[in-house]
Each structure stands twice: as C-alpha cells, then as structure tokens.
Nucleic acid binder design. Structure first.
Length: 588
RNA sequence: GCCGAUGUAGCUCAGCCGGAAGAGCAGCGGUUUCGUAAACCGCAGGUCAAGGGUUCGAGUCCCUUCAUCGGCUCCA
C-alpha cells in the first residue's frame, strides 16, 4: 500500500508518530487477515487516519459483523506472533510481477513517478507495497479494534469500483483505546438528532420531505434567541438587515450564472404565467439587486447587507444528516460592497465579529484556513492579489494561526474558512469569508468615485454561523443539550410538592416571568421525585421546589441541574442567582 | 447518486423454522398529595414504511419504491 504522506505534526509529536506507525501497521495486519479468510480479495489502500486506520478491499460479498470478529481474532494471532516488519526496496518490474494478481496495486505502481523508489513491507507471509514507516514488529501494535465497514469508491471516484472498507483504530495502550471508545460513545450520547427529539427541539418528517426541518416550540425559542442576538450585534457593527423572497425568475439565475453552473443543486423550476421561477439556493443575487437599486457613490461604501436568508439546495439523498446537512436552511448571510482601501479593515471586522459571536456561544478554539487563487479563476489577477493580501493581513494583524490551502480558493475569489472546535474537540465548518470577483462582473456592479468614474466595487460574501440549522446542531452537541441559561428554552421549572402548592408555584413562576425569565410549572399530579427526574432529563438549568415551608417563607428551594441542592432561598435571592448566572452572556 | 444495514404503537425496542401483533416509557381515566432522578391500578393505542409478488396462510420469503443509519463523493 501507499503512504499518503505523514502529517507534518505527526512527526513532531512522539505519541502521534507512534500511533501513526502503529495504525499503519495494523492496516497491514488487517489486510493479512482478510487475505487469509478471503484469498480472492483484491487489496487497495490502507492508510492511517486522524484517529484510526482503514483498508479497502474488493471482495465477492460485503463483510458482515461476524467477518469483522473473525478478522480481528486473526489479527490478534498475528500480533501475538510478534512478526517483524521488514522493509525491502525493489525495482518497478519486480514490483509489477510481485503484485501481478493485485490490479489496484498495479495501478498504484503505474501511477507512481519514475523516480520514486518502490518499497515493500513484509510481516509473516504478508507483503504490501508501502513506503512505511511501520513499527518494528506486529507485537508493538498494543491495542487494536475494528469498528465498522462501509462502501468506498476506488480512489474516491464514483465512476470507479465500489470497494468494501473496514475501519479500525489502534492505540499505544488498552487504556487509551478504551478512552477513545468512550469518546465515541460520548459523541453518540450527544448526537443532536437524538437530543433534538428528547428535548423536543425539532423533527424531520417523511411527510414533509428529507432534509427539511420543523422547529418545535423549544427549538424555536432558542432559534429566536440566536437570531435576536445576531440581529442586535449586526446592527451595532454597521450592517443593514434586509429580507428577500424565496423564489426568483430564471433570468436572475441566468445572469448570476447559477443556472449554468449550479443547476444540479437547485430545485426544479415552477412555471407561473409562462415564466420559470426557481427556489433560491443563495441570497447573493437579491442583495446585489439591492445594491443596484440606485447608483452608488463611493461615499456610501462600505455597504454591508445582511440577511437571515433561507435557501434550498438539492443535496444528494445519501449525504443528508440531521441538522448538519439539510436541503432547506437559513444562512446568516451578508455581502459587503467596498472600496479597495477598505477591504483589509472589512475583513478584519468580520474576523473580530466572528470571534465575538462564537465566544458568546462557548466556542473558543478555531482552525483557520486561507485559500488562494486556483488555476481556473475569473477576475483581475491584481484584484485577486490585493484581496488575498488583505485576508492575510487581517489574520496576521490579529496574530492568528492559520493554514494555507494554496490554490484552494473558489473560482470567483480567495477565502478564509474557520472551523470551530466543540467540547469534544471535533471541528465544524461554519464561518466563511469569500471574495467574489464573478458576480460584480456579471451584474455590472459599479460605484462612482471622486472623479466621477464608474468603478467595480470589491464584494465580500460572508456567513459567520454558516447555517442556523447546522450551527444549532453543533450547539446541541457542544453543550450535550445542557444549554447555558441564556439559551435554555426553559430556564427554570417550578416543582410544587403537592397539588395544594400549585397556586403558590404559579405565583413564583409569574414573578420570575415578570423579571424576564422563561419559567414553567410542573403541576402534574406526580411525586416530586418524578418531576425532578423529568427536569433533569430535560436538562433544565434550575428546579425550584416549593412546598409548605417555601410558601410560608415566600421562598423556593433551588436545585441546579448539576444535582446541587442550594436549599430554600427568598424569591428575590432566586432572581439574583439567575441574573448572576446570565452575567457575561448576551442576555445579561 | 453509489455500497451496506435498517424500517413493528407517539418514543425505545422484542417478535425463533411462514401459522391469532407484544413489552417498557409516553398518553388517557382513577387512586395517591408525597421534600430532591421513575407511586399504584386500569384503559386505549398498530394498513408491521408504501406498493406488488410467492403461499392454504406473510411482520417474517422475493421484487420495486420511499425514508433513516454507517460510509464514499460533495458541502453551509
């Protein structure tokens, strides 16, 4: 097999480097086991990945869970045999004959540049084309586990054969492996699709259609809190907030180029008065029409037009995933039209805004990527350079670490993508800041400069949360459904101990509601224990237990969802406690 | 779209070799009025995803479609 390059950080970190070699070696041992059980199997590639390894095979029938058990058992035998990994270099001809029965290996050999030194690694009876590196012997694969199987195209190309991939992972100790499996289990417990149902936040329905979300009252409260905060901060940062329709005539999408280049992702047109209309897959053309609604002066720029714009895109059925990948979603979209000498400051402002917003939602770790001009591009190369420089400048000015994806920009402009890291360290793509040299040209955007010349403005497209649906999904998983007080759909539930306390419970709730809190009363004829359990399961931040003693004292016994019982507090103190909890949040 | 798995009550799931559709939770009715994570009794609830086929007989076997899940590819 082929090494696809050791990640640079792996070489620096001894543990990562060991894991990398161990997993790579485990992939060999797995292929060995598969060939013993399925001698007719054709092997493809089997690299280590960020947290494990896989190997792709072409086999007569897909692997079953029982197959995985047998393969894993055989792997353990090989590991126990502690067979050394032996590297050998060889020339192209002997490699070809060695792998004469392995067509994928032959293709790999054929595609390698002539000057490449071919090498193989052996352990026991098994030999694989491979650059290495590996551990010294199979016994050094300390803790290994096969996880699941999946289909995967040969070389990721859907016109090539579908292979069967087996995923597994390996660690330097059994403890580390178990910790990893525990992280996977924790991720499953946090799954926003499960929590979304349990906490009654949203659902998807067969009857409505795949990838289309309905937000329930509790999810709806949270969404409006997010939107309110978003609007407020955008107004304060000099954005104008607009609204645009969900459909537009074919001509608009013709001009924008979407019909030529994006049609596969658009919902089919509807015909009205012999005119074709399309559901919008993007908001840009509408914002551009706003820009074009008058002749713009340089004095008006920068013009920042923002919208929580709902778009519809046809996503292939196999890629839909809860809220993370849907067909109808709302982008927190904005388009900034500006002068050349405003570009750097505008980009910087977007970055600052991003970090402020993300931090409000508890995200503090980022992975930033700058993508530069690809081979095929539109627009003036000088404007490209200026734009790319301004992106870089904004990053450097803020001393931000960032990677560079050379040539990874869109055909219409360079961009910065920001991934946020959640509580489990998983990365989510949300924020994107992209220059666009295509649409201003297509729509003939201009402004009039000091000398009366009509000049094309710079256009920056940006979304910070990305889509409200995806961001909400990330938020659910980040907090595991235990939202901070300012976002919690129900901030406190009042729990009367017996029915005779219902009336007082309502008074408590009414007082807190007057103070602006979202409070419910659990007046079911159930025991207090049941009500507390329910509130815990709903991850309600505050439980206010009221019985005879509290009613007497105009108080409530405060329990927080971490299980702490704070005892009976006067209602005024309860309010203070909640207010203190809101300090430093957008609701403060 | 492709590979594989799955689809049974509102939810989570059992249902063996084809032979009378089940449980827990939720819901509803009643009893209970309780001090920090599940009171008790009862009732109701199903075109077994949809459509077709095989069979004396299909939740169970076969085909098609739809959806979901794990991936591939793509992406906010």
């Amino acid at each position: 097999m082929l090494d696809h390059g050791t990640p640079e950080h792996a070489a620096d970190d001894p543990i990562e480097s060991l894991r990398h070699r161990m997993r790579h070696s485990a992939a060999h041992v797995m292929a060995d086991a598969v060939l013993q059980l399925f001698p007719e199997a054709k092997v493809a590639i089997g690299p280590p990945t960020a947290d494990g390894f896989y190997y792709d095979f072409e086999v007569q029938r897909p692997f079953t869970p029982e197959d995985l058990e047998r393969i894993e058992a055989l792997m353990l035998e090989t590991i126990n045999a502690n067979a050394p990994f032996v590297r050998e270099e060889l020339n192209r001809d002997s490699a070809q004959s060695m792998f004469s029965s392995q067509p994928f290996k032959q293709e790999i050999i054929d595609d390698l540049p002539d000057e490449t030194t071919l090498s193989i690694y052996r352990h026991g009876e098994f030999t694989d084309l491979c650059q290495g590196p590996h551990v010294a012997s199979t016994g050094e694969i300390t803790a290994v586990k096969l996880l699941h199987t999946a289909g995967a195209y040969w070389r990721g190309d859907e016109t090539r054969p579908m292979l069967q991939r087996i995923y597994g992972t390996a660690f330097e100790s059994q403890d580390e492996l178990e910790a990893h499996l525990e992280r996977l289990a924790e991720a499953e417990r946090r799954d926003h699709r499960t929590l979304g149902r349990q906490l009654n936040l949203f659902t998807v329905h067969d009857e409505i259609g795949p990838g289309l979300i309905v937000w329930h009252p509790r999810g709806g409260v949270m969404r409006s809190l997010i939107e309110d905060y978003w609007r407020d901060i955008h107004y304060r940062r000099g954005y104008s907030i607009v609204y645009s329709p969900h459909i537009g005539r074919a001509r608009l999408w013709q001009t924008s180029g979407h019909l030529d280049f994006y049609r596969d992702s658009m919902y089919a047109p509807m015909e009205i008065d012999e005119q074709e209309y399309f559901l919008k897959p993007m908001n840009c053309p509408f914002h551009i029409q706003i820009y074009r609604s008058s002749l713009r002066s340089y004095r008006e720029l920068p013009l920042r037009i923002a919208e929580l714009g709902t778009v519809y895109r046809y996503e292939r059925s196999g890629v839909l995933h809860g809220l993370m990948r849907v067909r109808g979603f709302t982008q927190d979209d904005a388009h900034i039209f500006c002068l050349p000498d405003q570009v750097a400051a505008e980009v910087g402002d977007v970055l600052d805004l991003t970090f402020e917003i993300m931090s409000a939602f508890g995200f503090e770790d980022y992975d930033i990527m700058l993508s530069t001009r690809p081979d095929k591009y539109v627009g003036d190369p000088e404007m490209w350079d200026h734009a790319t420089e301004s992106l870089r400048e904004a990053l450097v000015e803020r001393s931000l670490d960032y990677g560079i994806d050379e040539g990874g920009g869109a055909f219409y402009g360079p961009k910065i993508d920001i991934k946020i890291k959640d509580a489990l360290g998983r990365e989510w793509q949300c924020t994107t800041v992209q220059f666009d040299f295509n649409l201003p040209e297509r729509f003939g955007l201009v402004y009039q400069d000091e000398e009366g010349n009509r000049v094309q403005p710079y256009m920056v497209h940006r979304a910070i949360l990305g889509s409200l649906e995806r961001f909400f999904g990330v938020l659910v998983e980040h907090y595991a459904g235990a939202f901070p007080l300012w976002l919690a759909p129900v901030q406190a539930v009042v729990i009367p101990i017996a029915d005779r306390h219902n009336e007082y419970a309502e008074q408590v709730a009414a007082q807190l509601r007057d103070a602006g809190f979202r409070v419910e009363v659990d007046d079911r004829s159930e025991r207090m224990n049941q009500k507390i359990r329910q509130a815990q399961l709903q991850k309600t931040p505050y439980m206010l237990v009221v019985g005879d003693r509290e009613a007497e004292a105009n108080a409530a016994a405060v329990r927080t969802r971490d299980g702490d019982n704070h005892g009976a507090l006067p209602l005024s103190d309860v309010q203070e406690m909640l207010k203190a909890d809101l300090a430093g949040t957008p609701a403060a």
